[in-house]
Amino acid sequence: MTLYFMTFILFCIGMYALVVKKNLVKKIIGLVIIENAVNLFLILVGFRFDAEAPILEEGMGKMVAFVDPLPQAMILTSIVIGLGVVALLVAIAIRIYEKYGTFDISQIRELRG
């Protein structure tokens, strides 16, 4: 239970960076932290004590307990999607820097007039 709650705290730290910080790179960092927190929470929910990783081996009996493989498969796609999102965000941030010469949101707003 404490572990679940600590992932919520990690989520809140990411949300703080996303909302309060004015630097675009800090906002991207906050988004990555949120992704990590959510992925970790879902894997924690699927964990089972005294169980093996969901990979069958030769000579393994039928009654071996495995951890939940379904969240692992879904989180695997989620991690790679997160990488694509970060690539797109970095591309947009670099374009904004070239146009306005700064990563600061408030300065960009002033420059646009």
């Binding site: 695997l76 991690i79 790679v80």
Partner: peptide, 11 residues
Amino acid sequence: LSPGGGFAGGV
């Protein structure tokens, strides 16, 4: 057969 797959190999 083992941990890994297309995503990890591609990266």
